[in-house]
């Protein structure tokens, strides 16, 4: 059972079950806990190799026990995500914790990853349960439905879930090259049905300066 203690600490109540969390993110616990490092995020040999090849490496640990365990990482804001059989796409560096029953994997993101400086692959979390993602400042959750697509700055994008198509939109014109560009030359456009998490802060991206 995930709950937030303040906005920057995640408390997980456990009764003999397990969660997967970012390695070293435990700040406190009470009760009996066992921490086990999971090579390759618990995805087996194949997952491990995939992660090594795609550069989407994450070191996770499995926490199992009775009691309450507290997680936090560099005072980032934590956002809870509940999954009901759908898929969450998140950068491995932004994933803090996931239920033990959720499956993690990697997927190809296409151009979006390249523009936001994350690499071309992202982490997926799939199944039913809860997960916690981190953002710089509390994330805003925006719904995308067939009637209204959403455009997001690659630097502010954190995660998305549901059945969404993303395509990369570029407004680069000759004015951009002249230094008179609109400042928002690259955007990711989401269409379909799902949720997008954006943070109130922009990472430095390749497209950030044009």
């Amino acid at each position: 059972m995930f709950r937030l203690q303040g906005s920057k600490v995640l408390a997980v109540d456990m009764a003999g079950d397990a969660v997967r969390a970012k390695n070293g993110s435990m700040v406190a616990y009470d009760g009996q806990m066992a921490f086990k490092k999971m090579s390759g995020g618990g995805e087996g040999i194949r997952g491990m190799v995939t992660r090594r090849i795609t550069g989407e490496q994450m070191t996770l640990m499995e926490v199992r026990g009775q009691g309450t365990c507290y997680f936090a990482d560099r005072a980032s804001e934590i956002n809870l995500v509940s999954l009901g059989g759908d898929k969450l796409y998140v950068e491995s560096s932004n994933l803090l914790c996931a239920d033990g029953s959720l499956r993690t994997g990697t997927s190809f993101t296409g151009l979006r990853g390249g523009a936001s400086g994350h690499g071309l692959f992202t982490t997926t979390v799939e199944g039913s349960g809860q997960a916690a993602i981190m953002s710089d400042g509390p994330a805003t959750v925006l719904r995308v439905a067939p009637g209204y697509p959403l455009c997001v700055d690659p630097g502010a994008y954190v995660a998305h879930q549901g059945n969404l198509q993303q395509n990369f939109q570029s407004g680069v014109t000759f004015r951009t090259l002249m230094g008179e560009g609109g400042g928002e030359a690259f955007q990711i456009r989401f269409e379909g049905d799902g949720l997008v998490y954006v943070q109130p802060s922009e990472r430095n991206t390749v497209g950030g300066e044009v």
């Binding site: 697509p149 959403l150 997001v152 630097g155 502010a156 609109g182 997008v196």
Partner: peptide, 11 residues
């Protein structure tokens, strides 16, 4: 708008 302060938009 100052450049780069837009994080998302609809429409």
């Amino acid at each position: 708008l100052q450049k780069g302060k837009m994080i998302a938009y609809y429409g």
